[in-house]
Simulated assay, not measured.
Amino acid sequence: MAGEHLSNQKKYRIEELVLNGKQERADRIVNSDVYSPIFQNQFYHPEAEPDLEGVNDDLSDILNDLFILEGEFVVLAESYKSLLEESILKIDTSKREAIAAREKIMDMNMICNEDNGFFQVRTLTNDDFIEKDVINNDNVITAWPNGFTTVDCKIIDIVGNGIEGNHYVFTNDEFIADKNFTGNRAAVTDDNITTIYEYQKINADQNEPYVFTDLNFDGTEAYCTITLEANEPITSIKILSPDNELVLREVQVSVDNDEYLTIMDEALKLNKRENIYLKSKYIYESGIIAFPLSTYIKISLSSDGYTGEKIAFLHEHLE
């Protein structure tokens, strides 16, 4: 707790001074305010003979004060960390409650429009099922698996009609990629919410001049196919994306990276929850894709719309 480290460090310094026969200096620390520094300002006349022992004692006092500050900063940092973690937990709880309330309203609106025999909607939880019959993962209730483990995957290839990363995005007179490049393939599988992988296609009107090689005039959406290899066979993956217009086009799986089986070829927007009332084969907003036991997975994605970000490029004039 704050102050405990300070008191202990002062106590150690007092005991050290008493042990070395420096009672007067020790008494000064005892009689001082608990939060005042051990070191007291000293004035040394430039022509006076230096008191080496006194200077060494002053340096020791300063060193102890630095130890105290270090310890107090550590304690405060831990306190702030706990406060932030508690705040984040409360925000997440409130967010989940708000989402549940929104979903309940959406459910009511949909059901009342389709069937007037219903008068209320109740959210199902684990308590509504026999113990261990189901598992609730991010509000997605599924049958309880026989076993569960997380497996590392690596990118074999990414191909498409665009480019990887945010090379041309320009904001506040600087290229965003200089500080946060989003074309690192490791970000696809690192399970870190602070890293982002981006695949983009830059389209322009036919009347625009052709100014750099990555500019396109065909007007088609960006699309790419990501080929993954798992360290051992898996049966599902989870795609996390903040883009509500991200479209999953196709999923293919294989055990040998030679023959692939298509297990999903109906275009769907992963994060468009409203589609849950129209198509029941996918749990929207979950990002979960299930398939037969496989080692290699090909995921085809595309965009649906544009971001309107400001772009720029550097033109190099060669003579």
Rank of each mutant, 00 (worst) to 15 (best):
A2D: 10
Y12W: 08
R13C: 06
I14W: 08
I14P: 06
E15C: 15
L19C: 02
K22A: 15
Q23C: 04
R25V: 06
R28A: 13
R28D: 06
V30P: 09
N31E: 15
D33L: 09
F43D: 09
H45I: 06
P46E: 05
A48C: 09
E53G: 06
G54P: 03
D61L: 00
L63T: 03
L66F: 13
F67S: 00
E70M: 10
G71R: 05
E72P: 06
A77S: 05
S79G: 05
L84G: 01
E85V: 09
I91T: 06
R96N: 14
E97N: 13
I111D: 00
N113D: 11
N113G: 14
D115F: 04
L124F: 03
T125K: 09
N126F: 02
D127P: 10
D128I: 14
D128M: 15
D133A: 13
I135P: 11
D138I: 03
N139K: 10
P145R: 10
N146C: 02
G147I: 00
T150Q: 12
T150I: 14
D157M: 10
G160H: 02
N161L: 15
E164I: 04
E164W: 03
G165V: 02
N166M: 01
T171G: 00
D178C: 00
K179T: 13
N180L: 11
R185C: 13
T189K: 08
I193V: 08
I196C: 02
Q206S: 11
E208V: 01
E208W: 00
P209R: 01
L215M: 03
Y223Q: 15
T225I: 02
T225Q: 01
E229R: 04
A230Q: 02
N231V: 02
L240R: 12
L240P: 04
N244T: 12
V251E: 05
Q252N: 15
D256W: 01
E259R: 11
M264W: 14
M264Y: 15
D265R: 11
E266R: 15
K269P: 08
R273N: 10
E274C: 11
E274D: 13
I276N: 07
Y277Q: 07
Y277I: 08
K279A: 06
K279D: 08
K281L: 05
E285M: 04
E285P: 01
S286W: 10
I288N: 08
F291D: 08
S294A: 15
Y296E: 11
I299Q: 14
S302H: 12
S303M: 05
G305L: 06
Y306T: 07
E309F: 04
L314R: 07
H315K: 15
H317S: 08
L318Y: 12
E319P: 09
